[in-house]
Every structure is written in C-alpha cells, then in structure tokens.
Nucleic acid binder design. Structure first.
Lengths: 193, 193
DNA sequence: CCTGTTGGTCAACGCTTGTTGGCAAACGTA
DNA sequence: TACGTTTGCCAACAAGCGTTGACCAACAGG
C-alpha cells in the first residue's frame, strides 16, 4: 500500500511478457498443446510464476484474450457500407495481434472458449445487426451468418493457412466478403436484394 | 490365406466399432483430448487393441476420417444452380456422420489434419471451381472463398454451436449461403454480377 | 490329439502435464 | 543496519498420456 506515483510495479513487466508469450502459444498450438512450461520458457521465467500470477491455466487463457472488438457504431457508417466496413475492421483486428487467432483455435476445442465466442456474438455483433437489419427479430440469425463468413475466412487464412486464402490482398478480401456480409445484414430476405 | 467365401473376418466388427468411437471422440473433443483410452473405453475394448489395429494415434485418426466428399459433377448441374447444390450437398455430408466435424475440430489444432483439409480443397473443390468460374487461374481463390463460407458456417453450427446457427432450417441455410457460394464461383468479378 | 493363428486382456514402461510448497535473492522503508 | 514484502527459482508431487510386450482363450486344420 505504498502508492508512490510509480506507474507500475516491477512485476507488471514480466506479467505482460507472460501474457504475450501465452497469446503466441495459444494462437499457434491451441489450448492443450500450449503448455505452461512452454509459455514460461518463451517468457524466460519459471512455470510456477505463471501459476502465482494467474491461478491456473484457464485463468491464464482468460487473461490472455481480452476480446473487446471495439466495433464501429453503425450510426457513423452509411447503411450500404456497413458490410465492407465491418470486414475491413475485422481484418485489422486479426492482423493487429494473435488474440483472435488464439480465441478461434482454442474455441474449436475448449468449451469455455466457445462460450466466450458466443458472448462476443451476443453482446457485440447482434446489437449491430439489430440496428441495420430490416426486422429486429432476425438479428441473431443475420449476425450468426455474418460471423460464419468472417470466422470462416479467418479459419482458412490464419488457422488452416490455405495458400489461396493467404495470398489474397486486403482489398480483394473486402471486395469479396464485404457484399456477402452486407447482404446477410441488410437484404430484405434471402431471395430478395 | 484361407479365403473362404466369408464376407469378413471376426475382427472387422470390432475394427469398425473402434473407428466409430474414434470419430465420435475426435468430433466431440478434438485431437489431444480424445484419448486412446477413452476411445477404447467407448468401444469396450483394451487400449492396446487400438495400437495393434492402427499402429498409433495418428494412424487411428487417419483411418477414422476417410473424407471422400463425392461432390456432384458440375456438368450435371445448371450453372446458376451450382451454389445452392453445393451448399445442400455439404449440409448432407455434415449431418450424415461426425466425420467432417472431427476433421474440422482436429484441423484447427493438428497440422497434419490441416494439411489433409488443404488436400481436399486442392483435389476436390478447386477442380470444380475451374469448371465453372470465368477465368481458370482464379479457381484456387474462388474455391478458397467458397470453402471459407461453408467451413465457417459449419464452425458456428457444429463446433461452436451458436444457437442462431443451430436454429436455422436446412432450406434457410441453402437460401442464404447458396447465392454466396454461387457468386464466389461464377461472378465475373468481385464487383460485378 | 496337437499346433499355429487370431482376437483379446493385463500390467507396466517412460514421459509429460498442471500444480504445489519451500527457499533464496532483491528491494523499499525505517 | 535491520526487516518485511515482493519476485523468482528449484525440486517434487500425483495423474494422465501413448505405447509395449508378455500372457491367455478360442478356434481351425492336420
């Protein structure tokens, strides 16, 4: 409780080092193969420190992925641009760091990570869909369809690493995926514009 | 080498039992958490039998997922129906058994499973794209985009189990995803019909 | 009847995992 | 200088993993 005007304690640095190493390992290997020993090794620290800081492996994973998407407010975007805007935003998020790759890879195996992805859909994507789609009661389905396309592309590009997906330029991705998401969110119905 | 007119050996039954149990476990838990002991337990057999029949765990997984998609020949389908036809076909495959769910879930973590998915794309999906897309050199990109949508939807419905994805009727899925795949495969370019 | 093959069980191996508790050094404060 | 707290390393634990080899039961052919 000394509370100097010091910005952070000495251990906050290693804390951050551990979290960065954890993100990398979870993104690269998934939950089970990303061992605490390997993460601690990357951070040049003893495995027991990871336990002291984060309690257990699940706590470490929870701390390593913060998942605040900071999606744009639909009110700031022309309605006919929402698809392309969202796709571009997601691409930025995905390339910024390994957090989303980690969440996706772990979510495929770990039920609690899958639940967190459901939470993101529910609290961040469905509200947006509700603002732009014709009938608000369709918002969950339309948000889920949009998520399926965005997550599916991320799967092929960042997880499975299909060469043809990796090779696509950012602009091409937006040009192809943007209209798809636009249609899922704003089309009057599946068979009408 | 006795070769009676007997249809199968006595062990073929347990072999099949093991493979079925393996598919279920791999589909439900992913590669690492689907332990040989658990699979053997489901099949009411000793773990060592699994090793005798399939060599090791990788051999078991390879035998458990056969992955011959038997995709329809584009020559038998009207060009404007190829998207809906493919989506319907994939839905059938996915609901027929757990094989594709197992492949998807394991592919997210296991590099060799990811390579097998690349193989499916290369040898089964790209050839179809080459037959229907305007410029054959674009076939890999167009096939990858189509795969991203199909796999992405399968991810949300069968792996992550988003309620809104699970709730969609088969006809709705075809109505929403069919035109998307159709556009990826046959549109003149990303911004033209 | 013996005998070789097949289908299956049992017990153990070496290794890795997450996790724990004790001990040493560095540090801030008085 | 002395001392409590923080930060870190070390060694070990119990459990679970893939994998192995020895052994047993059924069975078919001579």
């Amino acid at each position: 409780m000394s509370e100097k005007q010091q910005v952070g304690r000495r251990s906050d640095a290693t804390r951050a080092t551990i979290l960065a190493a954890a993100r990398d390992r979870f993104a690269a290997d998934g939950y089970e193969r990303a061992t605490i020993r390997a993460i601690a090794g990357d951070a040049r620290i003893d495995p027991s420190m990871v336990m002291r800081y984060f309690g257990n492996k699940e706590g470490l994973f929870a701390a390593a992925v913060a998942l605040d998407l900071r999606l744009p407010d639909p009110a700031d975007v022309a309605r006919e641009d929402i698809g392309r805007t969202l796709v571009g935003h997601f691409l930025d998020l995905w390339e910024a760091n390994d957090e989303l790759t980690a969440l996706l890879r772990v979510g495929a195996t770990n039920p609690s990570a899958a639940e967190r992805m459901q939470g993101v859909l529910r609290e961040q994507l469905i509200p947006i869909a509700r603002q732009v789609c014709p009938r608000p009661d369709q918002a969950p389905a339309r948000a889920a369809l949009s998520a399926s396309q965005v997550l599916g592309f991320a799967l092929t590009r960042y997880v499975l690493r299909f060469p043809a997906s990796v090779a696509l330029e950012r602009a091409e991705v937006v040009d192809w995926l943007g209209p798809t998401v636009q249609r899922y969110l704003t089309a009057e119905s599946a068979d009408k514009p």
